[in-house]
Amino acid sequence: MKKEEHLELYYQMVLIRLVEEQAAQLYQQGKIGGFLHLYIGQEAVSTGLISARQPQDRVITAYRDHGVAINCGLSAREVVAELLGKVTGSSKGKGGSMHMADVNKNFWGGHAIVGAHLPIAAGLALGDQYQKNDGVTICMFGDGATNIGYFHEALNLSKVWNLPVLWVCENNQYGMGTAVERASAVSEIRQKAEGYSIPSSRVDGMDVLAVRKASEEAIAYVRSGKGPYFLEIVTYRFRGHSMGDPERYRKAEEVRQWQENDPIGIYRRYLVDHAIATESELNEVDQRANETTLDAVQFAESSPEPPAEMLFQHIYVDAD
């Protein structure tokens, strides 16, 4: 990887972190409503993963989607504006935190029903296969989502039809307050893929370069026509499931230990230790990410609300 690429990955991770921290504040100020699921701690997962895709590769994920959106190329402005329900947001203020998307960037959302987007991912891959496109569909989901039937139906179908889909489980150890081993028969999630004869690997999600490498290999495998592949990326969310989570289900000490394993800190140290970038270069990147974030907040706050007539727009494509 070239130096610029490293700096870009680092930039994206820092940008996600800062946008999420701003989002938390905006939520506390009552400017964001509904649910807000932060990606803090998991930045290396989607950053490494999505950096390995080609433009023709589709990405689809669950409701913890702000970071994924940024990695897919949505601007921080559109992301924050959507959080504030503004017309300049990626879904014009109609979707909110859980429903960001930009089909022009091949980012297919942001889906709030756990597991429901997995069969849709199989369908995206089916569409590409049918039309002989060489795109790979990258489908991200949590550990908790692997316990719902949709997961199993989708994996099975993807294998039976040899669909070009990469299944990516972000195993952050908990589905809301339920630890993996309390809800899943196997705590190494990738074992579930074995039941469907889908090859898999498990990777450290705090190491962006490890994620990137594993993703490149997995995407190449799927693109070669061999069928679906399963990646389990082990990570941890530093914040509550959503805002206002009392976090009675885990010990502060456990959270603290993982926080020492900060994916941004790890990467920063790597870049310096391997003389890829200097501290001052990285500080400049931090500064740039900070400016982008503040600009995004400013932009979102000064953006207009969706006009009233938009309530009745987008119900159907064909006007009657």
Partner: peptide
């Protein structure tokens, strides 16, 4: 109103 409920607060209350 016969729409899926939007996120934006004003639109949601209108519906």
């Amino acid at each position: 109103k016969e729409v899926p409920l939007p996120y934006n607060r004003t639109l949601e209350q209108m519906a």
